[in-house]
Structure formats: structure tokens, C-alpha cells
Amino acid sequence: MPMIEIRDVSKWYGSFQVLKDCTTNVEKGEVIVVCGPSGSGKSTLIKTVNALEPFQKGNIVVDGIVVNDPKTDLPKLRARVGMVFQHFELFPHLSVTENLTLAQIKVLNRTPDEARVRGLKYLDRVGLMEQKDKYPGQLSGGQQQRVAIARALSMDPICMLFDEPTSALDPEMINEVLDVMVLLAKEGMTMMVVTHEMGFARKVAHRVIFMDEGQIVEDATKDDFFGKPRSERAQQFLAKILHH
């Protein structure tokens, strides 16, 4: 059974269709990179996985739980699916430690002490232990994104979603975030990553999905994708992205 199963998912904003019959699987331990031009629906697709974006047609099953079933306990499901956002979305009114522990205490019912130990363990993993008492506004963008990753990991997720995690960062900060993600991938975390960082894809991805105009145009193994994408649109996209 795949960890994430996306079946014929379609979504409309009014009469405009943003997702067209998207179908794919993510196996346990697999790292999938989703790319495509802006407005291709890739961010929308990844957000349907933890039901941040509702959709009108199709099915998504995460670890055996049907996301679009009205009876599904969404908070419980989301607590098991980690998510990292383009703009970090740390909570600016809470300290780094409080950011790490809030959901552990409120959702997983861990004691504050347990939550603290767990949170700081992951903060240490992303190399930011000395920032534990600071507020998000006092950190650089790259540091904030690493804290956001630690925050997601503190929930012991069964898989991780990354929505353009480096696209809001200054160039010199991109690598510190990618390094953390590479480490995570090598440890066997199931990951679905929307990104244009093809270096990252080459290094750790198992499969690459290329989307355009709401459709999954290409869904291939890494070697096939970088070897010779079948669709012309993917070729054009790769040419644009790799030549600069």
C-alpha cells in the first residue's frame, strides 16, 4: 500500500480548473520532486494531500486514511503529515521553543517537558540549538525555515510535504535548508517536495513529477526525467531552468 495515493483529483475555482485528473503514488521512504512553471497547480496539489486545499473530484488516501472523507478527523491526520511552507509561517508571537512545542502539547497531548525535549532534539538536528529562546523575527530566513522543518519533525510525521521551501530565501541561504532536507531524505523519510532546485532532485529524488496547467504531464524516475523527458513542455522547462 502506498503512503500517499492520489487518484483522479480535480479541483475548480469557480469555472477555472486548477487540477485536472491528477493521479500518482508516493511509496514509503520515497522522495518525490514536483516541478513545473508557476501557476501549474503544483502547490495546490501538494496542499490537497493534507486537505489544506479542498478538491471536488477524486480521492486521496494517506496511510490508509481517506483525506476527502467527511468523517476523517482532519486535525489528527494533519498532525501525522508534516508540512513546510514557502514563507516558513513560524508563529511570530511565540519563541522558537514555543513554536516547536505548541502543537505537540495541544494536538498530541504531550507534557510540556516531553514536548520540549523532543522539540529541542530536532532543533539540534537542524543546528540551531543556540537560537531556542529567540523569536522568529530575530532569525534569518534560512534559520526560520530550518526551525519550521524542526517544528514539523517534532510531530513525528509519517511523511513530509515541502511547498517551495527555498523559493523565498536569499540565494546564500538556500543550501543550509537543502542540506537539512538531503539529510532527511537519506534517513528514509517519505517526502513530497515542490521545488525548482534540480540539484536537490538529482541528488536524492527517486521520482520527478512535472506539472503544467493543472495536469501531471510527466511522472518518471529521476534518471528517465533528466535523461530525456518525453514531453516537449518538460524539455522546454528543464532547458529554461538549467541554463542560468
Binding site: 486535525p75 509561517e89 495541544k106 498530541l108
Partner: peptide, 20 residues
């Protein structure tokens, strides 16, 4: 995005509102 982040962590509506 703050609301999304709250939901993504598994907080419900009242927790997201009240805490974030």
C-alpha cells in the same frame, strides 16, 4: 499562511484561532 500552518500541524479551528 499562518492559518494553514496551524491546520497543517493538526490544530483545529478554535486552537488555530485562540493560539495563533
Amino acid at each position: 499562511g499562518q492559518v494553514s500552518a496551524g491546520y497543517a500541524l493538526g490544530l483545529d479551528y478554535w486552537q488555530t484561532m485562540g493560539r495563533i
